[in-house]
Design a protein around this nucleic acid. Structure first.
Lengths: 149, 149
DNA sequence: CTTGTTGCAAATAATTTGCAGGCAT
DNA sequence: ATGCCTGCAAATTATTTGCAACAAG
């Protein structure tokens, strides 16, 4: 049944059910709460089997983001790593804490911060629409640094 | 005297005092609390007078950022505007509130938010190093939208 | 069928780098 | 003098787009 959710979701959005779309959607559903760049999705799906072009991956990711299925972020610490990162949109808004060494991403929500943001925007005369808060630091996992490029 | 501060600062950093560097530094000093992309700095300096290459602008901006004279940020709302933005580093940390219509940038600092960030990082086992908080919304200035591209 | 979709290659956009000549010290 | 700098053009990186062949409904 979790298998069938893919085609259904796609139809609801008005997108034809094609192999590339199903593969991308399943990839994210199989790895919830994980963050991937277009290149990483492309690599993962390529190694798996058939031929799916990188351009198609970009197109599908964009369509999914516009449909609200995926969320796009950009994590840029001082040493700019300038590529978009996608994750499954599980409804609940959250911010990110990224490990500068291994790339591990923790998600979190803080009511106090959200509240202050709204107050600040209002006091400065802005109609707040969205925000992006990313914190960068060093995690303390044993396997940290493993992803270091 | 404010004129002489430029060459002095450059020497302290160990960079030779050259025309491009002086021009870029003065450009930012003449427009404090303003945010510019490499392209905008290049345009502004080109229109002014002599020939300074865009590559040199990028090199100088990078050097100034590494020297701590400038701060680099990336403002990316949903409709990704993917270019780096530089501003004079006036010592005091702050976050940004960007108008999605005219590009106007307001700076702010909120002790409550800073405090919560540290607490969150600690609770998740991270040694926090830096963070980037950008809020996006609509300002209410009369001349808003003028910068809309 | 008919229009949406895909892979490939070429095109963009932002930024970086190689190189030979110039300039600051 | 001499090594740091600069402009120009070519190279990179991330992402987008044109196009003809192809497949979903």
């Amino acid at each position: 049944m979790s298998q069938n959710s893919s085609p259904a979701e796609l139809r609801e959005i008005g997108l034809k059910v094609t192999a590339p779309r199903i593969k991308v959607l399943e990839f994210f559903q199989q790895n919830p709460s994980s963050h991937y760049s277009a290149e990483e999705v492309y690599m993962a799906l390529s190694k798996d089997d058939s031929d799916i072009g990188i351009a198609t991956v970009y197109r599908v990711l964009t369509q999914f983001e516009q449909a609200g299925i995926l969320l796009r972020s950009h994590f840029e610490s001082s040493k700019g790593d300038s590529r978009a990162i996608y994750e499954l949109n599980e409804g609940k808004h959250h911010d990110h804490l990224v490990c500068l060494d291994c790339g591990h991403v923790e998600e979190f929500v803080d009511p106090a911060i959200e509240k202050r943001q709204n107050e600040i925007a209002k006091s400065l005369g802005f109609k707040l629409q969205e925000h992006a808060l990313a914190m960068y630091g060093h995690c303390q996992k044993k396997n940290c640094r493993s992803k270091k490029k």
